[in-house]
Amino acid sequence: MSNQASVLDNLEEVRAMIRRHKFNDYVFSIIGLIALMIGLLTLLTLFVDLVMDGYPRFTFEFLSEYPSRRAAHAGLLSAWIGSLLVMIVTFLSAVPMGVAAGLYLEEYAPKNWFSDLIEINVTNLAGVPSIVYGLLALGLFVYILDLGQSILTAGLTLGLLILPVVIVATREAVRGIPVAIREAAYAVGATKWQVVLHHVLHYSFGGILTGVIIGMARALGETAPLITIGALTFIAFLPPSPITDTPPFLNFEWLSSGFTVMPIQMFNWLSRPDHAFHMNAAATGALIIVVTLLMNGTAIWLRYRIRKNIKW
C-alpha cells in the first residue's frame, strides 16, 4: 500500500517538474524576445530623440545654407553636396574593383596558396577598424601621393573601406549561379570572359547591387577615417561644379577641392559646448539615419525579392 502511495507521490512530483520545465521554456522565449527587442527599442528611442531635438531645424533653409557661427543660420549645404561628391568617387573606385576581384576569386582563381593569400586578406580587411583606413589614407594619399585633403582622397579612402563588402557580396551572388548556366554558354562556343560577362555577371546583378547599396550606406555614415585624413569642418563654399556649360561639359577640379560631409558636420556641431548647435546636430543625425535606413532597407528588400524569385 505504502509503496503505491509513494509512486503516486512521485507521479505528482514528476508532473510538477514537467510543469516547471515547460514554464521555464515559456519564460525563456519571452526573455529571448525582449533581448532581441532591445536593439529595436534603442533604434526607435534614438530616432525619436533625434527628431524631437532637431525638429525646429527641419526646414528647407537647413539644406540650402552654409555652416555659420550662429547656430540658427547654420545649414548643411556644403556637407550634403560634399557627401554626394565623395560617394560618387567611392562608387566609381570600389564597385568596378570589388566586382572584378570577386569574379576573379570565384571564376578564375586556381586553388593554390596565392588565392588563399588573397582570401585571407579580404577577410582580414573586413575586420580592420575604419580609423586605420584613415591613417593609411593620411600617410599614403595625402602625403606620399600628394592628393591633399580632397574629395578624391576621401572617396578613395571610403572605396578601400567598402571594398571587402563589395567583394564578399559579389562572391556570394556568383556562387549561387548553377554550373549548368555556365556549361550551356560554353557549349555554344562562348569564351570564359563571355560566359562571365553575359551570364554570370548578368544573373548575379541583383545580389551584387544589394552588397553595393549596403557598402555605400556604410560609407555615407563613416566619420572617423575622414576626420583622420583632415577633412575640414567649416566649409563655406562649394566645390567647382562637375558639369559645365562649355565643352567638354565635364570638369574635374572638384576632385581636388576641400570638402566636408554630413557626419563630420554633425560631429563638429556636437563637439561644441553651445547647446544651440546640438539642435543642428540632431537634425543632421535624423537625416543621416533616414537616408542610411532607406538604403539598407532597399538592400534587404531587394535580397528578399531575389531569393523569392529564384527559380533555377
Partner: peptide
C-alpha cells in the same frame, strides 16, 4: 547600418 556618429550623439 546605423552610422556610429549618431550612436555617439545618443
Amino acid at each position: 547600418g546605423v552610422p556610429t556618429v549618431v550612436f555617439g550623439y545618443f
